[in-house]
């Protein structure tokens, strides 16, 4: 229940942060909101010798629109920054809603987007909606920068492609044809409960016809996953209630949830069916909500 001793750095430039991470390598950890890192350290699950805080890097907190690029969210934006962003409210309210309904207010005040992604747990609430919207992440390291689709970021529970010396700096939601998106999470109480299952969708509708659908599921597999077979069910089809149910059934079939104290595999699978169908319905009818 006590933090082990560590060295603490709070660089005020990204370059300096990268340099420190390169210097200390796997002995160091990035600190953003600390809602996950400090918890693990207090419980003896992690004992980094060095902590490099991002809290001196104010620029990493910005949420902006860059023409030709899309909406750029700094990795240090907190969940409440995201939930309250006027820009996101206007363009992708679905992302605001996802941030607003996770954790509890105290955690949303300090927990960050970067931490939510790099932490790489199946139940994280922001990756599914961002993947559905085709977002990519920018990583800065001593060797330079790289941008990759968020979908390709995760490799397993608590593991991802990020190198020990890399820092996630921003998430980019590209301009897109989609006409609606949403994320529905299912938790076991109204606040402070991790998602048992989360389903995010982005749909591109043309009248009654769905040109394209992207479905991303949380807590349904070791990593946030695309439900590609369910997507295929919808592609270029005229939407009917039966078709949406079929997509749900398909998503339930292709996901691979596990049993835990929050829910059995069987329960989770059925929730995937229901949530996928409901999310599709909502995004088709209501736009980016």
């Amino acid at each position: 229940m006590y933090l082990p001793d560590f060295e603490y750095y709070q660089p005020n430039s990204l370059a300096e942060a990268c340099r420190l991470m390169a210097k200390f390598g796997p002995r160091a950890r990035i600190l953003a909101g600390g809602t996950d890192l400090l918890h693990k350290m207090k419980h003896g699950q992690l004992e980094p010798e060095v902590i490099v805080s991002l809290n001196g890097l104010e620029r990493l907190r910005e949420i902006t629109y860059q023409k030709g690029v899309g909406v750029v969210i700094g990795a240090r934006a907190t969940h409440n920054d995201i939930a309250g962003s006027a820009l996101l409210q206007e363009k992708y309210r679905s992302v605001c809603e996802a941030a607003h309904h996770m954790a509890n207010n105290q955690i949303r005040n300090v927990g960050t987007l970067g931490g939510n992604i790099v932490n790489a747990v199946p139940s994280a609430d922001l990756p599914p909606i961002l993947i559905a919207l085709g977002a990519s992440v920018k990583l800065a390291g001593s060797q330079g920068r790289r941008v990759l689709p968020l979908e390709e970021f995760f490799t397993g529970v608590h593991s991802s492609v990020i190198e020990p010396d890399e820092i996630l700096t921003e998430v980019i939601i590209p301009d897109q044809p989609s006409t609606g998106s949403t994320y529905i999470r299912f938790g076991l109480r109204r606040s402070g409960a991790l998602a048992v299952v989360g389903a995010a969708v982005a749909v591109t509708m043309e009248g009654e016809t769905c040109r394209e659908a992207r479905i991303a599921l949380g807590a349904a597999a070791p990593v946030p996953m695309r439900a590609r077979q369910a997507e295929a069910v919808l592609k270029n089809q005229v939407i009917t209630p039966d078709l949406l149910e079929e997509a749900g059934v398909c998503a339930a079939r292709e996901c691979s949830p596990r049993s835990s104290i929050r829910g059995s595999e069987e329960y989770r699978r059925d929730l995937v069916r229901v949530l996928t169908r409901r999310a599709l319905q909502k995004a088709i009818k209501e736009g980016h909500v």
Binding site: N104, L188, R189, R190, S191, G192, A193, L194, I261, R262
Partner: peptide, 27 residues
């Protein structure tokens, strides 16, 4: 909502307020 749960060796697996789910004001 509430139940104290144990693993097969008799150790509590939800001895915290995240997984021992007391309802919240919103509930």
């Amino acid at each position: 909502w509430e139940q104290v749960l144990f693993d097969a060796k008799g150790k509590i697996i939800n001895a915290n307020l995240a997984e021992y789910r007391l309802p919240t004001a919103l509930d």
